[in-house]
């Protein structure tokens, strides 16, 4: 898997964080098992170049964090809505940004053919009908 916009370290970070946010659990496959990250360029390519640069930098830093630090950070982000102080807005933006990437690559119709399990959208029962003519 490669991206025209994100480095290999950044992609690894997304898979690591994705598996922490969405681990394998019952009928839910883990984030990395599904492999929706293969289509991440479809999402990132529309972002301004400066934002992509910042995202690469952030994800590369996260990629080298030990698991326990990363888990602490994710927990801090997840509980940031009620937090105050100068860092709280940064944690909130990180939270929405990372969850946005992860959920967009997971609850998606775009899944590689190599994944043969039940798709997350099927598991939650989402079956949108689009009548086109």
């Amino acid at each position: 898997m490669a991206s025209n916009y994100l480095s290999n370290s950044a992609l690894k970070a997304i898979n690591r964080i994705g598996d922490m946010m969405i681990p394998r659990n019952g009928e839910f496959p883990s984030f990395s098992e599904v492999g929706g990250i293969a289509y991440i360029d479809d999402l990132v390519s529309y972002a301004p170049p400066a934002d992509i640069k910042d995202l690469n930098l952030l994800l590369t830093i996260l990629a080298f964090m030990p698991n326990f630090v990363l888990r602490w950070l994710l927990n801090r982000m997840e509980n940031s809505m009620e937090s105050s102080g100068p860092l709280a807005p940064i944690f909130r933006m990180l939270d929405v940004g990372l969850r946005g990437l992860i959920f967009s690559c997971y609850y998606t119709e775009k899944i590689p053919a190599s994944y043969t399990g039940k798709k997350p959208l099927d598991i939650i029962g989402f079956d949108l009908t689009r009548v086109e003519d």
């Binding site: 999402l43 990132v44 529309y46 967009s104």
Partner: peptide, 9 residues
Amino acid sequence: RTEADTSAR
């Protein structure tokens, strides 16, 4: 045609 593409595009 997908929710993710809608947000991005």
